[in-house]
C-alpha cells in the first residue's frame, strides 16, 4: 500500500495506492486521522487503489465521521474501478463525497 499526504493550497491530498487490506488499513486510519488533526480539509486520491477490503473502507468511514464532527470537507477523488466496486457493494458510494477532479473539490471549499 502507498499512502502519502501532500499539502496543497487550502487542503491536504492523500495519495492512496496498491492493496489496502487488513495488513495496512491501520496505517491508512492513522494517516487520515493524523491529517484531519491539522484542521485541513482532506481529499483522498484513489486512482491507484488496486484492491480495498472492508477494513480499508472502515478507515475511510472513520475519516468521514471525524471530518463531519470537525466540520471539515472530506472527499474521495478518481476512484479506481476496483475500489468503486466495493463502495457500491457497501452502498457507501451514496454517502461519500466523490470527485473527478481536484478543482471540483476546491469549489466546495469556497
Amino acid at each position: 500500500m502507498e499512502c502519502t499526504v501532500r499539502s496543497q493550497t487550502g487542503f491536504d491530498l492523500l495519495e492512496l495506492g496498491g492493496e489496502v487490506d487488513l495488513q495496512f488499513s491501520h496505517k491508512l486510519r492513522e494517516t487520515i486521522l493524523g491529517s484531519l488533526k491539522t484542521g485541513n480539509p482532506l481529499l483522498i486520491d484513489m486512482a491507484k487503489v488496486s484492491y480495498i477490503d472492508s477494513s480499508g473502507i472502515a478507515s475511510l468511514v472513520e475519516g468521514f465521521q471525524t471530518a463531519k464532527t470537525s466540520k471539515l470537507q472530506y472527499g474521495l477523488l478518481n476512484i479506481s474501478n476496483a475500489a468503486m466496486q466495493v463502495l457500491t457493494l457497501t452502498r457507501l458510494d451514496k454517502i461519500f463525497d466523490l470527485h473527478s477532479s481536484t478543482d471540483q473539490f476546491k469549489q466546495k471549499l469556497q
Binding site: 478507515s59 468511514v61 457497501t90
Partner: peptide, 17 residues
C-alpha cells in the same frame, strides 16, 4: 447499512456476493 459507522461490513459483502 443505514448505520454509517466503521466495521461490520465484511459479513454484508460476503452475503451480498
Amino acid at each position: 447499512l443505514d448505520e454509517i459507522r466503521p466495521g461490520g461490513l465484511g459479513c454484508h459483502i460476503i452475503n451480498e456476493v
